[in-house]
């Protein structure tokens, strides 16, 4: 009976494959073609328009700066938070639950939350004014205050996106048996040495996943930036959005989309190489 049924797994998998094929591979091919064609003939015109645009350099720079600022801070914070809850006996779940609240909020909503804090009539100015630190409303989010704007966006992104890193790291930390740390302690390793020589190497797989996921998401940053800075802080996805909707130029928008994909793929490859996971060296 069962021998003749070898097609069943394939049949069960088929819908998901068709679904992904239709909604991912087809648009991907279309986008690629859109980016490197002009009126149906191969052309680099869209690429040229993209790189010669006034905002191109700034959006590349801004996206990379934001990624470089946000991702390391998030990894360090997630490691710190994960190590702290690991030491707790009671209330651990509650703390984790509270820490992951930002995950349940859409990124645009997160942007609006931080806008209500940082805008001219926002909570930050109210508090600063109440404390007598400022005498009148201060603008933080304009093109005249690029550093404050950058910091504001970075803080909002860190607030919004650290939880997902922390969840992956906590899952990784839970996989490390406590005997490893106890053995290291018995043989004289300080808490810092235990962390760097035992814990970190043992959570490499989690660290790798978290880095890849978080970096790819950081290159795709858009809604939070859009809510806080509008076009004062151009980023790659923002430019793709503008070319698509404001300028109605789908070709250049596609060129941006392809560029973001290439950067994400490159980052992933770098991580796979740099944070190598050797199954032979895992528990």
């Amino acid at each position: 009976m069962t021998q003749n049924r070898s097609w069943i797994p394939y049949a069960l998998i088929l819908p998901s494959v068709v679904f992904l094929g239709l909604l991912f591979v087809v648009p991907l091919v279309q986008t690629l073609w859109l980016a490197v064609s002009d009126n149906g003939t191969p052309s680099l015109a869209n690429m040229t328009t993209m790189v010669t645009d006034l905002n191109f350099g700034r959006s590349v720079l801004n996206t990379f700066l934001l990624t470089l600022a946000v991702v390391p801070i998030q990894i360090v914070m997630a490691l710190t938070m994960g190590s702290m809850v690991a030491k707790m006996n009671g209330g651990r779940e509650t703390i984790l639950w509270i820490w992951t609240i930002p995950l349940g909020i859409s990124d645009l909503a997160a942007g609006m939350v931080w806008l209500s804090i940082l805008q001219n009539t926002g909570y930050l100015n109210s508090v600063l004014f109440g404390l007598g630190i400022i005498e009148r409303q201060t603008a933080w989010l304009t093109y005249q205050t690029p550093v404050a704007l950058f910091i504001g966006i970075a803080i909002a992104e860190i607030w919004r996106g650290t939880a997902i890193v922390m969840i992956i790291i906590v899952a990784g930390l839970n996989q490390v048996p406590k005997e490893f740390k106890e053995a290291a302690e018995i043989f004289g390793a300080s808490p810092w040495t235990r962390f760097t020589r035992i814990t970190l190497p043992l959570i490499r797989p989690a660290l790798q996943s978290a880095l890849i996921l978080r970096t790819v998401l950081a290159f795709e940053v858009f809604a939070v930036v859009y809510a806080l800075g509008g076009r004062n802080f151009p980023v790659l996805v923002g430019e793709a959005y503008n070319w698509q909707n404001q300028n109605q130029n789908y070709g250049v928008a596609a060129a941006y989309a392809v560029l973001i994909m290439v950067i994400s793929l490159a980052a992933t490859l770098v991580y796979l190489k740099a944070v190598k996971v050797d199954p032979e060296r895992l528990p």
Binding site: P177, E179, F180, E182, A183, A184, I198, L202, R281, L282
Partner: peptide
């Protein structure tokens, strides 16, 4: 009991 030999 479970050796705790460092795998890495």
């Amino acid at each position: 009991q479970n050796y705790a030999v460092f795998p890495h």
